[in-house]
Each structure stands twice: as C-alpha cells, then as structure tokens.
Computed example of a mutant assay.
Amino acid sequence: MANPFEQIRANSNDQRRSMQWYQRQVQQLASNINTPSAAMRSDVFEVAPRIEVGSMYLYRYDPKHKKKLPYYDTFPLVLPFEPTAGGFYGLNLHYLPFLMRAQLLGKLMETANDKTIGDETKMRYNWSLLKSVGNEVKPCVKRYLSQHVITQFYKVNPQDWKATIFLPIDNFVGATKQQVFRDSRNMVNG
C-alpha cells in the first residue's frame, strides 16, 4: 500500500496550507486509513522501539483503571512530553476537536528544532511551555503506563504531522467522539 501522505506533501508544494485543505486531502487520499487496524497495516507509520519527547506516536492502549474512567481512547495519537515512573505523560490529540488539534499542533510546531520540517525534526516543548500555551492542553494531558501499551509504537513522520491529526482513527470506549469533543470544549472554555 502506497503512502498517501507523500501525495499530500507533493500537493502542498511545501507551502503552508489551511486546516481545511489538509482535512480534504486526508479525506480524499487517505480514506482507507479509517480504523486503528488500517493505520497499523499502512505504510504511513514507522515502528519505533521507544518514544522520544518531541515526536508523535500512535499505539494500542488498555488503561489500567478503565473501569474508573468515564471514557478513554484505545488508539491514542500522542505527543509525549515527560517520562514518569512506569511510563510517560503525553498529549492525546484525539481528545480535541479537529480545529483545536490543528491550532495546538501549530503552536507546538513553532518550537521545532528545524525551520524546514524533515524526517529528524523534533518539537521542543515541556510541561512549563504546555501550561503557557493555554487551556486547550487540559483535555488531552494523559498518563500512559508502559505495561498497558499493547502494540508497538508507530511513529508519525514529522512531515505528516499536519495530515495525521485528521485521520478518523480514534477509538473511544464509553462515549462517542462528539461527546468527547463537547466535554473537551467545555473544559477549555470553562
């Protein structure tokens, strides 16, 4: 299976494009990546032996305390930001509506170590910076335990960050995506 994100990058001609443009491109060119299983089978993501702060990852996750949670995402799209005993803290972008995802990713990409986004680009953020970004980080800050990651980590190529946030591959248990988005908006605005 060919990587549709290569076509999206070619179509952008390395120009800045609107959120709507990326969303349309993903709907047209990556429509076959619409479930977690399809994402893991695709050529889009690279298996990574471990995570690094400043990169973006997908993986299957089975929360330890899921019975206590009102809902959770079993296929998070995460920007790790801090290691912790037995795991790490990360921003699961799936908790944010698409526009808020794009806005937050845009702010974080301003911290990138390269002006031109390439294969080795990393975002340089930490908890202090994330707190100063605004309330939009609140709904997506999660702690992940390494023992509850049930697949390999799938690293997103930095050149594909903008397109990946629009893939419909979240897998919420206990609530619909619309309910999660509504709760997140309330948390951000409340």
Rank of each mutant, 00 (worst) to 15 (best):
P36D: 11
S55H: 14
F45C: 01
Y57S: 01
R60C: 13
N34P: 01
R50T: 07
F88L: 06
F88P: 03
D114A: 06
T111W: 15
G106H: 14
Y59W: 14
I117D: 07
P70W: 11
R101Y: 10
L105I: 10
L104E: 07
L93N: 00
P76T: 13
F88E: 01
F88Y: 15
M56D: 03
G118R: 07
N32P: 02
D62T: 07
R24N: 15
E52I: 05
L69V: 08
L108H: 09
F81C: 12
T121I: 00
K64L: 13
F98H: 10
E52Q: 08
Y22N: 03
A39Q: 00
T74L: 06
R17Y: 09
Q28K: 14
Q28A: 13
P80S: 08
Q27N: 14
G90Y: 04
K64R: 13
S37C: 10
W21N: 02
S18K: 04
W21D: 08
R17G: 06
E52G: 04
T121N: 05
K67P: 04
V47K: 01
G118C: 13
K107C: 04
L91C: 06
G106E: 11
M19P: 02
K107I: 11
A48R: 01
P36Y: 14
D62L: 14
H94W: 09
I33E: 00
K115F: 12
A112Y: 03
Q23N: 14
E52V: 06
Q103D: 15
E120Q: 14
L58M: 08
L99W: 07
P97E: 15
Q23P: 02
A38L: 00
T111G: 10
I117M: 07
N92C: 04
A38E: 01
F75N: 05
V26E: 11
Y59E: 00
L105P: 03
L104F: 08
K68L: 12
N34D: 00
W21I: 02
Y71L: 04
R41G: 09
A48E: 02
K68A: 11
M56W: 10
P83Q: 10
M109G: 06
K64H: 13
Y61P: 02
L79A: 15
F75W: 10
P63G: 06
A102P: 03
Y57D: 00
L96H: 08
